[in-house]
Simulated assay, not measured.
Amino acid sequence: MVRTCPTLPPRMLVLDRRVAVVPIDPADTKRGAICISEAGVVASMVALFEQTWHSAVPLGADRSKDARTGLSTSEQELLTLLASGLTDEVPGRRLGISAHSVRRQMSGLMERLDASSRFEAGLKAARRGWLR
């Protein structure tokens, strides 16, 4: 299956959930790679891949709205990033938008959820199954 998403994790290969291969220098992958077999590091890489996979949509699918939640792809990604405890600036950089745009989108989500705080919005989004 092929899926697409607006943001990608660093290049990596994970084999049998036991070994990961990552570039020595992510900016210059021609410099070589390193094999990692430490369970904690490999588990983190698997979790990163799974988070990215779940936020992606099948190739050719309409990315404008998630049929299940009614959220746009950027809204879904924003909720996921903010739910992980990141400040407005980090999701903004990852999504290629300003911190002001992050706050504006979050304000719209809070209004749709009828929430008076981000914390309440997070609770309501989780109850609705909007967080992945």
Rank of each mutant, 00 (worst) to 15 (best):
S64C: 04
I24G: 03
A56M: 02
L131Q: 04
R18F: 00
R127Q: 11
E89K: 08
R104N: 11
S72E: 05
L78I: 03
R112M: 12
P58H: 09
F49Q: 01
R127C: 06
G96Y: 05
P10G: 15
R93P: 00
A20L: 02
V14Y: 00
L8Q: 12
A27R: 12
A125G: 03
S117H: 11
V46W: 00
P9I: 09
S84D: 11
M110Q: 13
L13Y: 08
M110V: 02
E75S: 04
R128Y: 11
R93W: 05
A47W: 00
Q105S: 08
I97A: 02
A83C: 10
I34F: 11
L8C: 15
M45Y: 13
R11N: 14
G122S: 10
L113E: 06
S116N: 15
T7I: 15
P10I: 12
A67M: 09
R18Y: 01
V57A: 14
E120R: 14
F49G: 00
R3T: 06
P58Q: 06
R118L: 12
V90I: 15
T52L: 05
G40D: 08
T7S: 15
P91N: 02
S55F: 04
P23K: 08
E38Y: 05
R3L: 09
G108D: 06
R3W: 03
S37Y: 08
V90N: 11
A43G: 03
L59R: 12
S107Q: 10
T73M: 14
A61F: 06
S98V: 02
L78C: 01
Q76R: 14
P6S: 11
V41W: 05
R112H: 07
K124R: 15
E38P: 01
T29V: 15
H54Q: 15
G122K: 09
P91E: 02
L8H: 13
L13D: 10
E50P: 00
L71I: 07
A33T: 12
G70A: 07
S116Q: 15
S55E: 10
G92W: 02
W53A: 06
G96T: 03
H100E: 14
S98Q: 07
P6C: 11
